[in-house]
Amino acid sequence: MSRYFTDEHEWIDVEGEIATVGITDYAQEQLGDIVFVELPAEGTTFEKGDDAAVVESVKAASDVYAPISGEVVEANGALEDEPALVNSDAEEDGWFFKLRIADTSELDGLMTEAAYKKFVASL
């Protein structure tokens, strides 16, 4: 399994043709207490860059974009009951949705963990 990152502070785990997407620990820290996550329905298809989810903190709503193109095969139902999972475990249990990858070449444009760390340090 390989993990990729975007400059929009998302992480993407790729296993075969399935990509699991979430927001990074840095992102949840910036957002603060998360009170609601709006997730896409199964079967929704996204082009890279489409609005895919909305995360609501106490203070504001923020869009989460589809980091790559694909079809939603599962959304993380645990976030409905416990949106704060995104705060407590952003990069594992707090995942948002899984996509069936439409075009693996899109992964080439994403960052490695080392590159993302460097990117965050530069902010």
């Binding site: 995360v55 203070k59 504001a60 709503a61 923020s62 869009d63 989460v64 974009y65």
Partner: peptide, 8 residues
């Protein structure tokens, strides 16, 4: 991800 800090 993009945010909307409610700052005037």
């Amino acid at each position: 991800m993009s945010g909307n800090e409610d700052a005037t």
